[in-house]
Simulated assay, not measured.
Amino acid sequence: MTLVRLSLSFTGFGPILADLPAVHAAEECGFDGLWYAEHICAHDAVVPATVYLRETQRLELALMGINPASRHPGAAAMELASLAEIAPGRVRAAIGTGVPDMVAKLGRSVDKPIAATVALHQALKAALAGTEITEEYPGFSFAHYQLNPPAAAPALDIMAVRPRMVQTAVRYADGVCLSAGASRTYLADTVAQVERLLAEYGRPRADFRISVVVPAVVSEDLAQARAQVASVLSTFDAPTLEYLSAGAIAPNALVTALASGRPAEVAQVLTGEVVDAMALVCLPEGVGEALAAYAGTGVDEIAIAPLMPPDQVPDLVKLLAANRPAPAAMA
């Protein structure tokens, strides 16, 4: 029986070296991969990926948030090729357009997210294949660019939330990376959409990976854990979070609460029940059941993003590894 892939995801805001014990624990406990999110004004993904790849022997490293606002796709392709050289077959990238507020810090904007994402994917794929590129893309261009391609080109996923970007991922990419804060209802519905589209495009389901980043706090103090997750979720774009919360938050409830500027109203929306639907928050003895609920949505990979102090994460990794779920169809 093949288990659902289990990975450890880092937000990009914490200290790089402080997470090394968790990285080592993931390697030792049989995790499948590491995910590292690039956030403008925090950490890039390339330097941490380099450190973590050199500290491990088998874990796949997925770089999240590669986008054309922060660097030219030609430079991004060079970085991915370099990583693939030092860790053949262990590099993956989840690409997208970036968070508008963060992109704006670089003086950039994204007017047509779908077109920009397709352009980025096509440019990276061509570059990593060693194709000579002379072409104008939306927002960037190449003139006689030709990369020395890596022996094993990194897989390219597309980060998606709404149906049109999910469809774009299915049409072009090697997989889709679904956002943190997604409810199990949203995930099950999106998996169904992906599988329907794969069939329409004639693409084998086994060749396409559906991954999800899951915020997690495992604690004996559930009230505090839920409050901590709610605090993080409240920083998300409200319409996006409402969409991800399918089955958990009433339409327009969070948008209205955040617009009020009153924390009490936000707290009335992000209740403990809502948080439980959108993250992995449980007692230590509940980890197996919580992981099984995510596996039951049909996703291929669960990337756990601990919202916990770094020194607590190695023990969390061991607990997660001891409770790895089987796929929904095999459970």
Rank of each mutant, 00 (worst) to 15 (best):
D44I: 03
D44N: 05
A45N: 01
A45S: 09
V46L: 13
V46I: 14
V46N: 10
V47P: 10
V47D: 13
V47T: 15
V47I: 10
V47H: 03
P48G: 02
P48M: 01
P48C: 06
P48T: 00
P48N: 00
P48Y: 00
A49T: 11
A49N: 14
A49D: 09
A49W: 14
A49S: 14
T50E: 09
T50W: 06
T50K: 08
T50N: 05
T50P: 10
V51C: 07
V51S: 01
V51M: 11
V51Y: 10
V51K: 04
V51I: 11
V51T: 11
V51W: 09
Y52N: 02
Y52M: 11
Y52W: 11
Y52S: 05
Y52H: 13
L53H: 04
L53Y: 12
L53N: 02
L53C: 06
L53P: 09
L53E: 06
R54C: 13
R54V: 12
R54Y: 07
R54H: 13
R54K: 15
R54L: 14
R54I: 10
E55I: 09
E55R: 15
E55Q: 15
E55L: 14
T56G: 07
T56N: 07
T56Q: 09
T56C: 04
Q57T: 12
Q57I: 11
Q57V: 12
Q57S: 14
R58D: 12
R58W: 09
R58Y: 14
L59H: 01
L59K: 05
L59I: 06
L59Q: 07
L59A: 05
E60R: 15
E60V: 15
E60S: 12
E60K: 13
L61S: 04
L61E: 03
L61H: 01
L61A: 12
A62N: 04
A62R: 14
A62V: 12
A62P: 04
A62D: 05
L63C: 11
L63D: 02
L63W: 12
L63E: 07
L63M: 15
M64I: 12
M64K: 04
M64V: 15
M64Y: 14
M64S: 15
M64G: 11
G65F: 06
G65K: 05
G65H: 06
G65N: 06
I66H: 00
I66R: 01
N67V: 00
N67K: 08
N67H: 00
N67Y: 07
P68A: 09
P68F: 01
P68H: 08
P68S: 10
P68Q: 03
P68C: 03
P68L: 08
A69P: 02
A69T: 02
A69I: 11
A69K: 04
A69R: 13
A69H: 05
S70R: 03
S70W: 06
S70P: 06
S70N: 11
S70F: 13
S70H: 15
S70K: 13
R71T: 02
R71Q: 00
R71E: 03
R71F: 03
R71H: 01
R71D: 00
H72A: 09
H72P: 13
H72L: 05
P73S: 01
P73Y: 01
P73D: 00
P73A: 04
P73T: 01
G74W: 03
G74S: 07
G74N: 04
